[in-house]
Amino acid sequence: MTPQETAHRIIAANKYLTLATADRDGNPWASPVFYTPDGDDFYWVSRPDSTHSRNLAERPEAAIVIYDSQVPLFTAEAVYLTAYAEQVGAADLSRCAQLYSSRLPEQTVFEPEQLQEPAPLRLYRAHAVDASVLLNDGGPDLRVPISLRAGL
């Protein structure tokens, strides 16, 4: 399996990513969020007053890790991404809300009106600009860069 194929498998098999942000002063913050992938884009729903959302409003750079934390020692595989993230704007909200909802359980669907004022939640999108994969080779931390041109 190629590193690119490994990345696709990891992204498809997991439901949560760890989103790392920083505030204006560079103070780090990490949050787990349920995500829906779409190529090089990753969507999640959050409150705009949560720490990571406030951080992204000030500083759109983010780091993302997607991994299975339940595997035995030295068998982990992960996808590492650097990205730019933002709240999805009104022009894209309907399409992106439908896309995000496609990965949710059938009875859970977010309509655009649930993701804008006065509702408490918003839809966010991170666009990956760089990626690498942690490969399971029986030892610690072998990260291999992968091309985003082929799409995630």
Rank of each mutant, 00 (worst) to 15 (best):
W29A: 08
M1P: 14
S69F: 14
S94N: 02
A20N: 00
V65L: 15
Y43L: 12
H52M: 06
Y124G: 02
L142T: 14
S53P: 05
A97S: 07
Q70V: 11
D130C: 06
I10A: 10
V129E: 09
V88W: 04
A78L: 09
V129G: 08
A78D: 05
R125Y: 05
Y43W: 08
R149C: 00
Q98P: 03
L81C: 10
Q116I: 05
D141P: 05
S46I: 02
T108S: 02
Q4C: 10
A85L: 07
D49A: 15
A90T: 07
E111L: 08
A22P: 04
Q70D: 15
A12T: 07
Y80N: 12
V129M: 07
E106V: 09
P118N: 10
Y67R: 15
R143K: 12
G39T: 10
A76F: 11
L115Q: 01
L99R: 09
Y43K: 08
E106T: 03
P140C: 12
C96N: 02
D41G: 13
Y124L: 00
A22D: 03
I146K: 07
D25Q: 10
H127D: 02
L56V: 08
P48S: 06
T51C: 00
A13Y: 14
S69Y: 14
A20Q: 02
E113N: 08
H127K: 15
A12F: 06
P48V: 11
T108P: 01
Q87K: 03
Y16S: 10
A20L: 03
C96G: 04
T6C: 14
R103Y: 03
S94R: 09
A13I: 15
I11F: 13
Q116S: 06
S101I: 00
R143Y: 02
S46L: 05
A76P: 12
Y35L: 08
L123W: 01
L121H: 10
F74N: 11
D130S: 12
A13D: 15
H52D: 05
I146C: 02
A30V: 02
R47G: 10
N55D: 14
H127V: 08
G139Y: 12
T18H: 03
Y67N: 11
L142K: 09
R54T: 11
L123R: 06
S31C: 10
R125C: 06
L104V: 00
Q114F: 01
A83D: 06
R149Q: 12
F42G: 05
